[in-house]
Design a protein around this nucleic acid. Structure first.
Lengths: 248, 248
DNA sequence: ATGCCTCCATGACGATGATCAAGGAGGTGG
DNA sequence: CCACCTCCTTGATCATCGTCATGGAGGCAT
C-alpha cells in the first residue's frame, strides 16, 4: 500500500472513529453521557478538535479570554494559578473525560493556566454554543449542572484535606483518589504512572517536595506502595484508604 | 386598630413588598439579577417563602435529599460537613444574596449541613422548576452558570489560602473578604458584627481557636483592627489587604 | 560518552502553629 | 442575683513540617 494511501486511510479512520463522541471510549464518563444518539450528534457538531498538546504546552493562559470549555480526551493536565508576586499554586489535575475551564464562565477570563503534563488531546467546546444547545437538550443542561456541582463537592473535599489532614493523610488521599479515578476509566487501580512531578504533587497538597519524598519513602517501607520514579504500584489499597481518612 | 387587622395588614405588606424579587433590595446581587421585569415575575412564581430560621437551626442536614437551592435573604449561615468519625469542617459562610446548596445537584443529596448563625430568612428555589425555567430564560441560565463558576473560583482561592498562607495571612484574608462582601451589600466595610464564633472561623481557616484569638490580639496591638467580642472595627483596611497577599 | 540539566532522596535544624491547661467574660435560665 | 454554660483569652510546651544543604539518578543534547 502506498504511503499516502495509508495516511489518507488513517485520516479517514480518525475522522470516523476517533473524533466523534459516539465512538469515543469516554462517552460514558464525559459531558454527553446522558444524551441519546441523535442528540449526541448535535453535541458532536459543536465540538472543535484540537491538535495534541505536547508536554509542557499550555491549553490556555491565566487571564486570557474565556471562550470554551475543554474535555480531556487523552493525557493529563494541571491547572496553576499565580497570584500577585507569589509563586504558583497547582489547583487541579485533569484526567480524560474531565471538563476544564468551568471556572472561567463567571468573569469570562480563565483564572488559571492549564498545562499538559504529557502528550494530551482535548475536545474544545465553545461555551456559547454549549449554552444554546443546553437550552434545547435538558439532558445536556443537567449534565453540565452536575459536572459543576461535582467539582464544587470535590473542592470541598480538597479544602478539608488542606485544613485538617496530616501530610501522610494527604498523600494517602491523593493516591487513593488517583487510583479510583483510574479505575473508573478502565485502567488498573493498582498500577499506574504519575504524569506529574513530586513538586506538582507537593504544591497541590500544600506540602514541600521533601515532605512528599519522605512520606513516599515511608509508605514504601510500610509495604503500602512500591514507587520507582513515577511508576506506582499500590500493594495495599485498603490500608491506603484507611490512612486517608482523618478519623485516625 | 384591632390586632388581627394589623396582622392582616402585616401579612399583606410582606406579600407585596418583601416577598417579591422586584421589591427585594438584593435583586441586584441575587440570582434574578439579569432578568427583565416580566421574566422576574416568572422566576418569582417558583420561589417558596420560608419562615425565618432561628440561630442554630438547620436549613437542611448533610445527607438529606436535594430538592432546592436557597438564596439568603437576611442573616447568615455556615455549611459544615462531617466525614467519617472525624470532626466537623466548616466549608463556607453564606451572606444575603448568596446561593446555598449548589453542591447537592450532582448526587441529589446535600453534602453538608447548613446552619443559621443568627435569625435568618431564605428563599427556597425548587431546583427542578429552576432548571425548567432556565430553559426558557437564557439570562437566568447564564446567571446560574455564573454563580456556580464564581463559587468554583472562590474555592480555588480558599485552597490557595489553606495551602500557602500563614495564620496571619489567613485571618487578614478572612477579614478583608468579609469587609468586601459587606461593602457590596451596602453595609459598612469598616464596622460590622461577626455572626460566627472564633471556633467557626478557626475551623474554616484551618486554625486552632487559640491561634485565632492570639492573632486577633496581635492585629489589635498593631492598630489594624479593633475587636470587642464579635464587634469588629477595621482601622486600616489597606494594611489588612496587604497582609492578606502572600507576596510578603 | 560527557556534561548539564531537572528531578528526587535524605539529613539536620528551626519555626509556626497545635495542644494542653487554666482562668476570665458574658449571656441565660433558674 | 446566682449558677452555669459557652465563648474567648493567654501562657507554656511540643510536634509537624518547612527550609537549607547536599548528593544521587536519570534524561537530553552535544
Amino acid at each position: 500500500m502506498p504511503v499516502n494511501a495509508a495516511n489518507a486511510l488513517g485520516k479517514r479512520r480518525s475522522l470516523l472513529h476517533e473524533t466523534r463522541c459516539q465512538n469515543c471510549s469516554l462517552s460514558s464518563l464525559c459531558l454527553p453521557l446522558a444524551l441519546e444518539l441523535e442528540d449526541m450528534e448535535q453535541f458532536d457538531a459543536i465540538i472543535r478538535r484540537r491538535s495534541p498538546l505536547k508536554k509542557g504546552e499550555s491549553l490556555f493562559r491565566q487571564g486570557s479570554a474565556f471562550n470554551s470549555v475543554f474535555a480531556v480526551r487523552s493525557g493529563s493536565l494541571k491547572q496553576i494559578t499565580t497570584e500577585g508576586s507569589g509563586e504558583d499554586q497547582v489547583t487541579n489535575f485533569y484526567l480524560p473525560s474531565e471538563l476544564v475551564g468551568l471556572d472561567g464562565i463567571d468573569e469570562q477570563i480563565y483564572p488559571g493556566s492549564v498545562i499538559a503534563l504529557e502528550t494530551t488531546t482535548v475536545c474544545e467546546i465553545p461555551f456559547d454554543r454549549l449554552d444554546s444547545l443546553s437550552e434545547q437538550l435538558p439532558e445536556l443542561r443537567g449534565q453540565l449542572y452536575r459536572s459543576m456541582s461535582k467539582e464544587l463537592r470535590d473542592d470541598r473535599k480538597m479544602m478539608r484535606l488542606l485544613s485538617r489532614k496530616t501530610a501522610d493523610q494527604r498523600l494517602a488521599s491523593f493516591f487513593s483518589s488517583l487510583s479510583d479515578r483510574f479505575r473508573r476509566r478502565g485502567y488498573s487501580p493498582y498500577s499506574f504512572r504519575l504524569s506529574m512531578s513530586r513538586a506538582d504533587i507537593g504544591n497541590y497538597l500544600g506540602l514541600a517536595v521533601e515532605t512528599v519524598s519522605r512520606i513516599l519513602g515511608r509508605f514504601q517501607q510500610q509495604g503500602l506502595v512500591e514507587v520507582s520514579g513515577r511508576e506506582v504500584n499500590i500493594l495495599h489499597l485498603e490500608a491506603l484508604v484507611a490512612q486517608a481518612q482523618d478519623d485516625h
